[in-house]
Design a binder for these strands. Structure first.
Lengths: 335, 335
DNA sequence: GCCAATATTGTTAGCGTTAACAGAGACGCC
DNA sequence: GGCGTCTCTGTTAACGCTAACAATATTGGC
């Protein structure tokens, strides 16, 4: 290991210039003669020189790294977001450092943020979809660019979020439009903002149609909990339409209905949320709501870069609209 | 943003010691008087001092960061691996920097590695499950600790991998044990080692039973390709058992079979691979093979840390055995 | 061909940390 | 009591880079 690569001075010596000129070439500084630039580039290539990010970070006070704090990066949503964020960041020349957290409480989040700060990240993206994270975010150091994704809409922190309410409203409305008398909802955990937003959207759509929302079936995002709720729904003959807070819940519901001999969409229509890649191959293919994770990633990175460059804090807010993807799990009710 | 936090000298001044003593306290150096240590700690706390990782990385030549190069972190396998890796790394005091790559070819991988190297990461984990990555890995700089996960078994590079062959053999054997005359296989893309290993295991099990493997059905991991293969399989009356290279392929197969009126497991048994969380809620619940991603993550990090500490290169190799998870998608064939 | 303006390059001084060495007490042993 | 040996602490010099300034070409206008 021992041997370190060549440093800027080595390149400079080989190219017959000062290290500062090398630095200028590297940073695309304008006033460098073309001929010199080429000589330097050749020297860089010949030595296989690689700039030392640590040294640069030390002197500029910022590294070209963006820290991400997230909880469960195995879930489809967070995973997609992280991947999209990383893609986008790479295009802008930034690396992404992940700080997974077991719980999204104050301590855990602060600790993750501290870790990022001691590496002098240029900015931080917090994927903080739950209640308990909110408080932590306000107490965070104000001197680092920060953006939250799917966080608490009521906090004065820069926020990018999928419009859960609109998505849920669209899903519910879609079922009502198909002719259903009412729509049941299997929700996510109540401390997730995503959950709350989807519940709100569902409720709004029903109220707007002059309907009284039926009791909520609370789930926890997992297919297992969807299955349990599905078993209950299957036993209630009046149920003809179900909107689930994500596709995995829908999968569980579908299986429960199947076991109880209920046919989808003939007996009961189902709409999910997320549009996981497999949703098109559920039995039957699932009508669902697709959030645009790329757009969210782009928006949050953009917001972060703006802060980084301008130095402005500012509590911006941006919302990305999801789209309804119509497949075969919805049909008019049989009378 | 402007304002930088306190530096080590500030802490030193407040504690009435030299900055070097502060450094010693921070790094747990033995020869510091207890009283001094406490005074320093108090000063650190009072100022909210945070060590500057960049400066440390500059002087030591290594940061407390581990770089991960991966392709599609949205897929269940890579995502789980990444999450597990991050968890484990955090416990050891390391941050994880992700370098996603669009393609796993030489150029892309090298570029990602270069990015990590210029940040002077302590080590690199390459999740390189495809053929085209192999070459790139051998050309990589030898002076940085590196471990590959699910890489090319034939290359002289430290490697941690799930025992694909054993997993596939177990899956196939499980179907044969149930009484099936032969087992068909829907595979992953042929340039993935995971794929190749699973094909080998399937073939081995059949050959060991004195059977001639039926033609391979090539898929690409997606439910869509599983669906296409499933449509073909459903038309062939002699097919009674299918082993798919992952659970999403299985999902596609299940749906195709369902559409063709084939019942699982009554008419055809299906076994998947991965044990995605939803597999237990497929229709019917899927028998599958579960790789232990945590174990893989632990093993690779361990291997990496060993290299980091000892400075030894060494082409170690470690294999993690997967386990068969039996559910309802397998039954004896009807005669 | 001369001067000012401009383009290009070089020099110097840190950034905040660790490593290597040096110094100052305290202790024990002959 | 002198001296080697610890234990603890301080001093100095890098690490590789960028920013600020200084110095040196080069250019254009007359």
């Amino acid at each position: 290991m021992a041997v370190h690569g060549p440093a800027m001075t080595d390149v400079a010596r080989l190219a017959g210039v000062s290290h500062q000129t090398v630095s200028r070439v590297l940073n695309g500084h304008p006033n460098v003669r073309e001929q010199t630039r080429l000589r330097v580039r050749a020297a860089i290539a010949e030595l296989g020189y690689r700039p030392n990010g640590a040294a640069r970070a030390l002197v500029t006070g910022r590294s070209q790294v963006i820290g991400v704090v997230a909880q469960n990066t195995t879930l489809y949503g967070p995973a997609s977001l992280l991947a999209a964020l990383e893609q986008t960041a790479a295009e802008e020349g930034f690396a992404v450092s992940v700080g997974s957290v077991r719980n999204l409480d104050h301590r855990s989040i602060s600790a993750a943020v501290e870790r990022h700060l001691s590496h002098r990240v240029a900015g931080i993206v917090v994927i903080a979809p739950v209640e308990s994270a909110g408080e932590a975010l306000e107490r965070l150091p104000k001197d680092v660019p920060l953006v939250t994704v799917d966080g608490d809409p009521s906090r004065p922190v820069p926020l990018v979020t999928v419009d859960q309410v609109a998505g849920a409203r669209a899903a519910t409305q879609h079922l009502l439009d198909a002719g259903h008398r009412t729509v049941w909802h299997v929700s996510g955990p109540s401390d997730w903002f995503d959950s709350v937003g989807r519940i709100d959207g569902w409720r709004e759509a029903l109220l707007a149609a002059g309907l009284v929302p039926p009791p909520l079936m609370p789930g926890d995002w997992s297919a297992a909990s969807g299955y349990r709720c599905g078993q209950m729904l299957a036993r209630m003959p009046e149920v003809t339409a179900v909107f689930t807070a994500n596709d995995h819940l829908a999968l569980g519901v579908l299986r429960a209905l199947h076991e109880f001999g209920k046919r989808v969409p003939d007996d009961i229509s189902v709409v999910g949320f997320d549009d996981v890649p497999e949703a098109a191959y559920f039995i039957p293919p699932l009508t669902t709501v697709r959030p645009d994770f790329d757009a969210v990633a782009r928006a949050s990175l953009q917001m972060l870069l703006t802060q980084i460059e301008s130095g402005t804090g500012g509590a911006l807010r941006q919302t990305v609209a999801p789209t309804l993807v119509s497949r075969e799990s919805v049909a008019p009710p049989r009378r």
